[in-house]
């Protein structure tokens, strides 16, 4: 019986591999073997949890000033990380500031992924005029340095958290759009997408089933590296007075207002900077680790 013959032929050489292992579980498996990435992932999670729980964890009211206890060093009385130029508790302000700073790092990137990624996938998959229209608009944004663009937009909108959010999102859209477009136009010409078209599938179904799953990893990796940029940019905006308005805490704003005291209490003044540095470093390293873990061997 010929049919039986074919079955046995294929079976004989079948590797006795794992019966079921999804893509994401294999990524997790590879991450487990990468202690550096796991460590910095924990740092990010810890910082996020600490910021979320700031009202519980903070030893003092972050807005409570004291003219007597201005610019006290680390370990002063009940202020483990000292006080700032208005005598406010640094630890509490750092915790509360983390809420704004981490949100300003993550949220604009997520929004930009949603908007830029969608535009990029559409441009890449549909090609032709749609592509030209979308990508030329993006090129206009590209023409400005990102810092300048963020400052200009934020300044025009009048400062504050919301305008900073809009500014940063707009800054990240073009580059995410470009990454998505490149990844999509590569996928578009691969045989399995052709095969899907040959089976009569409509465009939206092909994008959903075959394109998104394959362009998401590169977008995701790139986006995770943007988080650190976003934290720095939003710190920069706050430093320039375009971010949060006092007395709300934000690492960038804290750095800005403490800069005059750098010769009095250098360590205390450096604390917000250290926080920014640690967060952006963590996001960068995790992004690198993800890049390795998500690299599927064909």
């Amino acid at each position: 019986m010929p049919a039986d013959a074919t079955i046995t032929t294929a079976q004989a050489g079948a590797p006795a591999g794992p019966a079921r292992r999804g893509y994401w579980s294999s990524v997790a498996e590879r991450l487990r073997h990468d202690p550096v990435t796991v460590f910095f992932l924990c740092v990010i999670l810890l910082a996020a949890v600490a910021a979320l729980l700031a009202p519980v964890l903070a030893p003092h009211d972050p807005y409570e000033t004291s003219m007597l206890k201005r610019l006290k060093p680390v370990g002063f009385e009940e202020h483990p990380l000292g006080t700032d130029e208005l005598g406010r508790d640094m630890l509490s302000r750092l915790l509360y500031g983390g809420r704004v700073s981490i949100m300003m790092g993550v949220l604009p990137v997520l929004l930009a992924v949603a908007i830029g990624g969608t535009l990029g996938v559409l441009a890449g998959f549909l090609g032709g005029l749609v592509n030209t229209a979308i990508m030329r608009v993006m090129d206009v944004f590209y023409a400005f340095p990102s810092v300048l663009l963020a400052v200009a937009i934020s300044g025009t909108l009048g400062g504050g958290i919301a305008s900073g959010l809009v500014a940063l999102t707009l800054v990240f859209i073009p580059s995410l759009c470009r990454v998505a477009e490149t990844a999509t136009s590569q996928i578009r010409s691969v045989d399995f997408v052709e095969a899907a078209r040959a089976s009569g599938a409509p465009t939206h179904s092909i994008i959903r089933a075959h394109v998104i799953g394959n362009v998401l990893p590169p977008i995701f990796i790139y986006a995770s590296s943007l988080v650190s940029v976003s934290i720095l940019l939003s710190a920069g905006l706050s430093f320039l007075g375009l971010g949060v308005s006092p007395p709300v805490a934000d690492w960038g704003a804290m750095l800005s207002s403490l800069r005059q005291a750098v010769y009095v209490q250098p360590l205390v003044c450096a604390l917000p900077g250290i926080a920014i540095f640690v967060m952006s470093l963590s996001f960068n390293l995790v992004s690198d680790g993800l890049r390795h873990a998500m690299d599927v061997k064909a």
């Binding site: 046995t8 032929t9 294929a10 004989a12 050489g13 079948a14 590797p15």
Partner: peptide, 22 residues
């Protein structure tokens, strides 16, 4: 007259003759 199966995985060769399974 095809040879059944496919070539082995070099990282997990069977003991003995590598062609034996086919």
């Amino acid at each position: 007259e095809a040879i059944p199966g496919s070539p082995p995985d070099l990282a997990a060769l069977p003991p003995g003759c590598a062609f034996a399974p086919r």
